[in-house]
Design a protein around this nucleic acid. Structure first.
Lengths: 135, 135, 135, 135
DNA sequence: GTGGTCTAGACCACC
DNA sequence: GTGGTCTAGACCACG
């Protein structure tokens, strides 16, 4: 379910975080669902339990999952996003970085737009009722 | 001209790369312009010359700048971007990550769009004659 | 009557201990009163009987409750608190930790005092005849 | 400088966190000061670098210290506390727990007050200009 | 030199 | 069974 690229420069634990976030956003796993235990997940991904544990901990700090003592780890029932100034600044910085990369790849506005749309739809579902991301 | 944040998690050498890219994109420096020497730049940024050197090397590898032996470092006259498959994949991956973050910050399509537009215009100049990123 | 939060970092058995202590302090249950059996309590709290059992054992060790063989578990008639050196040290350590947290939350003396008073009164009843915690 | 009790039930990494917080609050180390490197600290405390690292990471998440890439770890220059509802609730819960313990140790209001005062003064300096914590 | 990541293996508390 | 903590030892990126 989650693909790990051991040769990637992004740490394994972060790939796990991203993978789980994606599974939740795509509603492949839902609030209340139980995640594989740390050891199970470690076996599945042929990695170390500590690495999985670190990912789970990070996700718990983000209130995305929660652990029930001795019973396992679950997708949080109620995730209430809180818009922090700090996060927003980081987000814009990252976006700027991304757009600069796009520029240096020779992409123009239209091309960026198309890719943006493609990734968005792939992540958050079909392009509902004509409501394109670019309208 | 270039802001360095030693506390940031992005390496300093990468912040330098981003800074120079931004200066070029914003046309504050242009093809053919001479860049400060490694040592000058290091002084300006109060950082280590080795760090600046690493940034210059990377930029040269990307054909964004070029060093003329004994004469200094210049912004490349002819930078021909080529869309490499690999870069594109990384780009989409980064974009996906960004959109997931946005989702978990509670941003909806419209809000993402607005921010996207804001950052784009801020980077690449005023919204020129109807050519909005979102049309 | 007792609130259990499975997500909390404090073990469930300890939450039960705290809950029973609170009921006694607030005189909702009194010395001599019978406590629900382990199984009853486990049903009430939708938790594991072993967990309740552990809480009861701990409370008995503290002389706060006592089990009469075959008759059930009761709130102790004569509980004689003794100030053990060890407990006192732990108490001060915990208090220190709490005050450091308060400090890092930006609370000043007055604010800490107010909260202290609020919690105390809420726990041990109305502010009886001038006997404020802060006088 | 920091005392570690390997037999304590509180994890070593948390003892390190508490120790550093205390050193800062008592102004034994100040904003801008460099902390011992992870390895140095590990040697000083005869513990594992990973354990120290975990403590440093936690402190960084709290904005209490910050790491400068490749240069070491420093006490944050500007710590701006932000009063969150969540933290406040946890604080009151912990305080309630503490007061219940105090009650069960047989401490009355005055005694609790005295201990409170003692710990406070010990932590945050001498009792300035008659401004007792309990006025 | 610095911190960050990963592994393998161990022990523990909790449910 | 579950996750949490710790150790010893290794490799890597960064400055």
């Amino acid at each position: 379910m989650i693909n790990i690229d051991a040769r990637s420069s992004t740490p394994i634990y972060e790939q796990i975080i991203l993978g789980i976030k994606e599974l939740i956003i795509k509603e492949i796993i839902s609030p209340g669902d139980k995640l594989p235990s740390v050891r199970e997940m470690a076996n599945m991904l042929t990695t170390n339990p500590q690495t999985v544990s670190k990912a789970y901990n990070e996700l718990e700090r983000l209130n995305i999952i929660e652990t029930l003592r001795g019973k396992g780890t679950y997708v949080s029932m109620e995730y209430k996003p809180k818009l922090e100034e700090e996060k927003m600044l980081k987000f814009k910085k990252d976006l700027k970085k991304l757009l600069m990369d796009a520029h240096y790849m020779g992409l123009n506005e239209n091309q960026i737009n198309l890719i943006f749309k493609e990734v968005y739809v792939n992540l958050l579902g079909t392009d509902h009722e004509g409501g394109s991301i670019n309208e």
